[in-house]
Design a protein around this nucleic acid. Sequence first.
DNA 1: GGCGGCATGTAAAATGTTACATGATTTA
DNA 2: TAAATCATGTAACATTTTACATGCCGCC
Lengths: 182, 182
Amino acid sequence: MSLPHAILTALAEKPSSGLELTRRFDKSIGYFWSATHQQIYRELGRLEEKGLIRALPSARPTRGQKKEYEVLPAGRAELTAWVTDTEDPKPVRDALLLRVRAAGVVGAEDLGAELRRHLALHREQLAEYEAIEKRDFPPERNAEQDRLRRLVLRGGIGLESFWISWLDEALAELEEIDGGRA
Amino acid sequence: MSLPHAILTALAEKPSSGLELTRRFDKSIGYFWSATHQQIYRELGRLEEKGLIRALPSARPTRGQKKEYEVLPAGRAELTAWVTDTEDPKPVRDALLLRVRAAGVVGAEDLGAELRRHLALHREQLAEYEAIEKRDFPPERNAEQDRLRRLVLRGGIGLESFWISWLDEALAELEEIDGGRA
DNA sequence: GGCGGCATGTAAAATGTTACATGATTTA
DNA sequence: TAAATCATGTAACATTTTACATGCCGCC
């Protein structure tokens, strides 16, 4: 149940319309909590109904018109409570690991191509994160918010690095297996 | 759409009943593709309907009676195709990273306790994986299936190791922030 | 014959995905 | 004024989660 909190966080950082939120979920926030515009609009409606956010007065309620939202005190309170809540890590669900296990059962031919493709994707993502780190977090930016945002980014960097090194290991292993088979 | 494939993989490794599958999803397979018994029973029904698996003849169709399934050739073909399919990695969705970002907005007090709790959980999980590696994958087990299963396990080990080192970093950062605040 | 554990399921709600629909604004 | 783009939404469906319901079986 984190989508509402992701939206509250984004709005607390900066009041926005649904489309602007969608854009920010395509980068930044979305790097670790993705959402489509349909989810966002639905959730904005619910949050408004619950009194956690409101549309800015300027916004007329017609379709096709931009409608900006801001967080209300109740929303900020909800967010504060959630931050220190007890919530266990979700069990991992990773299709690629599952596919490697399946390959153990039905045979690993041609698995290499897909692994190499993923490797390239993760390298790209890592490069993107590192560019952001260089651009947005120079050493002089030291406010609490900057430090925490950088920490989150370093989570992304660590995850991508993990995948890259695991995929390297996996490809080496596949070569050995194929060697044994030839 | 990997749950059916997770189940096909598990059944291909060993024909099982719904409850046995549930047990195996609580360890082993479930370490990287979790599922509840409700999901498993429903999916078994669908897979049977599609002709990818079948209930073993011995199984009578009454409620409360054990019912074992095995994979049919069509199921094995489906699994083989899926292994080499092109399927992009899913965008990350991690509530803890999101909560740290939210803490940047509403304040990071008391975040430490939750981070320490997660750290302990990840350390436990890592220890469990390492015990399995020692127990199930001694160097002499070298068949293709063993190598691939070990590779998957090493994925789990790498992921847990990443979280542990990120949480260490995060806790150090929090201390510095609190130091600056005091 | 009742109780606890094994085993299979149903129902409802929340969440996420995919495809489509509609109005407003800009610009060629 | 037509096309492109911005912006908000609906509808239908699939998946996941949570809570509950039911039947069988051994054992005391």
